Simulated assay, not measured.
Amino acid sequence: MAKNKPNQGARKTETLTLRMDPKVKFLIEIISRVRRQSITGVVEAAMEETAFDLDVPYVEDGKSETRALGAVFSDIWSTDESELFINFCAHMPTLLTYEEQRIWETIKISPVFHESKTSKALTDWSIDGVGRIDRGMVRTFWEDLVEHSIQNRESRTVVPFEAPF
């Protein structure tokens, strides 16, 4: 059986290119030698440690509070981009970029993404005036939804998404 090349199928890792002060880069190299870790391992460990020290605004059951990012990250993370997006919107809405806000607002005003009799994958939470979001429909039309948002980014109002069926 042939193996997938790195650019085919799902990736297990992502590439990150950083610009940093040479002094900091050398510091990371020393840490990696002392710990007998790769530079990637040192950076990953530092990020994970920072996540538990970093408080973020977090919404749960409609209540906003502050929690350590490392403690709530698993509530948000998903390998599915649409699921990750919905989780992020639900739990950390104040951290959305303008483009993410437009997609989220498009989801909220588009009936195709609202709970219906045929919905099978609903959110555990609901949005005032909207109800629960049909995660299955968002997943099905994710790429079309993102493209719709890009095409309508110049509109002064959010344009509802209509499913192509």
Rank of each mutant, 00 (worst) to 15 (best):
A90D: 01
S119G: 10
F52D: 05
D75Q: 11
K120W: 00
D55Q: 13
S126D: 15
K108V: 11
A71S: 14
Y58T: 03
G9L: 05
R19P: 01
E143C: 08
S82E: 10
D55K: 05
A71V: 08
K117T: 01
Q101A: 06
V112T: 10
R11H: 15
V112F: 00
K63V: 10
P6L: 15
G136T: 11
I28P: 00
K108H: 04
L95M: 10
E99S: 03
S149T: 12
Y98F: 12
M47G: 14
H148W: 06
A163C: 08
T40Q: 05
V59W: 06
P160K: 12
K12E: 07
V72D: 04
D61M: 11
E49R: 15
E65W: 09
I28H: 00
I39K: 05
F26T: 10
F165H: 06
V146T: 11
S74L: 13
K108M: 10
V146H: 13
W125C: 02
T79A: 02
S116G: 15
L122A: 09
E48Q: 12
F88E: 01
A121C: 09
V59K: 05
N152Y: 03
T79M: 00
Y98C: 05
Q101W: 08
E29D: 12
P57H: 00
L95G: 09
L18M: 03
R153I: 00
K117A: 00
F26Q: 14
G131A: 15
C89M: 07
A71N: 10
V43W: 07
H148D: 01
R102H: 02
Q37H: 06
R67K: 13
E99L: 08
E60C: 03
M47R: 01
A2R: 14
S126H: 07
P160N: 04
K3T: 09
L16V: 10
Y98A: 11
V59C: 07
K3V: 12
I107W: 12
T79Q: 04
M137Y: 07
L84N: 04
R132P: 06
T118R: 09
D21S: 13
R33Q: 05
N4D: 10
W125H: 14
E105G: 09
F165T: 09
S149Q: 04
D128A: 14
